[in-house]
Every structure is written in structure tokens, then in C-alpha cells.
Amino acid sequence: MSGTLFLAVEEAGGLFDINATLPLMAVQFLVLAAVLNALFYKPLGQAIDERDGYVRSNLTGAKEQLVQAEKLAKQYEQDLAASRKQAQQIIAEAQAEAEQVASQELAAAQQEVQAQKEQVQSEIETQKESAFQTLEGQVEALTRQMLDKLLSFA
């Protein structure tokens, strides 16, 4: 049993038997490298690179879209704030206008009332005057009658 183990080393050939196997193996290896390059490294390497490019371009596209979306959101917020301000301004303007109109109308009404009052007063005055005049006339007539009566008795 142990004989086979040790005997084998000393037989023809031996462990370090270098012969034509070496160059043939080298050629075979180079052919294998070329074949694997065509069958394996190139197509799969291309697939990997293409995938890398695809992922990278998608990523940059997504980032750009994100930036754009953020810009849009900002712009909308700005627009919103501006229109809110505008609305408030419009409301304030309308209130001011209404107040002005109201005060104007109030003033006009007061004036009218004043004018009417004055007219009525003047009317009253004239009527009073005419009443006094008629009264004076009647007083005169009555006095005359009374005088007549008194004179007639005497």
C-alpha cells in the first residue's frame, strides 16, 4: 500500500515532467480567453454597462423632475400669496368705497331734510303772517261793530 505511494514518484515522467503540454496548454488558454471574451465578457459587460447608463439617466431625469416640481410648487405658493393679498386689497377698497358712498348719501339726506325743514318753517311763517293779517282785519271789523253797537245804545 505504502509502496505505491512512494514508488510512483520515482517512475518515468515524474512530478516535474515538463513537455509539449505546456505550450499547448498556453495556446488552449488563450483560445479560451478569446472565446470567453466573445461569449461572456463582452455581452454581459455590455449588459451591465447599459444597465448602469439606464439607471443613471433615469436617476438624473428623476432628480431634474423633482427640482422642477419643487420650483412649480414654490411658484404656486407665491401666486397664492399674491392673490390672497390682492383679494384683501379689493375687499378693503370696496369697504372704503361703500363707506364713502354711505357718508355721502347721509350728508345729502341730512341736507335735504334741512332744506325741507327750512321750507316748512318759512311756510309756517307766511301762513302765520297771513293768519295774523286776517285776524287783524277781523279784530278791526269786530271793534267797529262793537263801536257801532255802543254808539247806537248811547
Binding site: 505505491t4 510512483a8 517512475e11 515522467g13 512530478l15 515532467d17 513537455n19 503540454t21 499547448l24 488552449q28
Partner: peptide, 20 residues
């Protein structure tokens, strides 16, 4: 078996068949 080879002869050159 150590150092024993299965020889092939190709154009007068000896090669180790088992390796190939």
C-alpha cells in the same frame, strides 16, 4: 499515483493526455 502520466503523442511530441 503521483507523477504518472497518460502520454499522448502528437507529431512526435509527448503530451499529458489526462491534463487535456
Amino acid at each position: 499515483e503521483v507523477g504518472q502520466h497518460f502520454y499522448w503523442e502528437i507529431a512526435g511530441l509527448k503530451v499529458h493526455g489526462q491534463v487535456f
